[in-house]
Amino acid sequence: RKFWALARTGQGTTLRGNDQVNGYLLLATSCDGTLATTATPTTVRVVCNNTLTIALDGTTRAIKVPHNTRFDPQAVKKQLGIAVSQWDTFMHRMRTLSERKVQWHEAMGFFMSVVCDVPPNSKLPEVLPNERALRKVQSLYEGGGRGATLESAQGTAWGLLNAVTEYVDHERRARSTEYRMDSAWFGQGAFIKQRALQAALQLAA
């Protein structure tokens, strides 16, 4: 069984259209020792409560303390300081996404790649995998999502990314909200969000 908490770091950035994004540490542990105690720098977009792990160069900055090691508070504090200091760099990239306008074909290519795992410029399969999910993220991007019509998100790479994070965090099919949240932070959902982040950054590069 996992236990988790979100702790505010005090960091925050406002993107165009008063789109507020705040910094948190996602703290997680398990009572049976199966999960190392982790602290993962995370962003929360206020308008929709979408969460996204801060990742630079494709790697997250999670700090892990295995249960079988002696807890060294000074070492962890130092690691946390390094992790939290990545905020400015990460949010600069998110600001770049909010300024990158995307064309319809780019949006479709993004969703096909991230949601359906169909590489760009490849032949469409006869049966499209995850078609229901594709339709949902499209509708979220095209105005159905919370904050989708803000200046920062409407027709931008930031909007593409947030359509996926909202789908994973709030819309994806799961046995319960708890299962969906677990996947969004620690499982397949987290992987999908990171894939969306990398695809969005490639668009804006």
Rank of each mutant, 00 (worst) to 15 (best):
R45L: 04
F3A: 10
T149D: 10
I54N: 02
K64L: 10
Q194A: 03
N68Q: 12
P73I: 13
M91R: 02
T69L: 10
T96Y: 01
A39L: 14
V164P: 12
Q198L: 11
M181C: 07
K64A: 15
T69N: 05
L26H: 11
A174S: 15
K78R: 13
A196E: 00
R100I: 08
V21N: 06
A205P: 05
A153D: 07
V65K: 07
D88K: 01
P41R: 03
M112G: 05
R8Q: 13
E151W: 01
C31W: 02
H92F: 07
A28E: 13
L27K: 04
R70G: 04
R195L: 07
A205S: 13
T149S: 10
G81F: 09
T69V: 15
Q188F: 08
L6G: 09
N121W: 04
P129H: 08
T38P: 02
A39K: 00
P66A: 03
L134S: 01
K193D: 09
L35P: 02
L80R: 12
P129Q: 12
A133G: 10
L80Y: 08
L140S: 11
R95I: 06
V118G: 00
V118N: 00
H105G: 01
S122T: 15
W158Q: 08
Y24Q: 09
Y141L: 07
L25P: 04
A153C: 11
R172C: 14
T43C: 11
W104Q: 12
V44C: 09
S98I: 02
T156R: 04
K64E: 14
A148V: 05
T14R: 10
V127W: 05
R172G: 12
E142K: 12
T29C: 08
A133E: 15
T42A: 05
Q103H: 11
L52I: 09
S30I: 05
E131P: 02
C31Y: 04
K78H: 09
V137H: 09
A204W: 00
L150F: 06
K193T: 11
A204L: 02
D88I: 00
S122W: 08
P120F: 03
Q20A: 07
L161T: 06
R61S: 15
L124A: 14
Y141A: 07
C48H: 04
F110H: 07
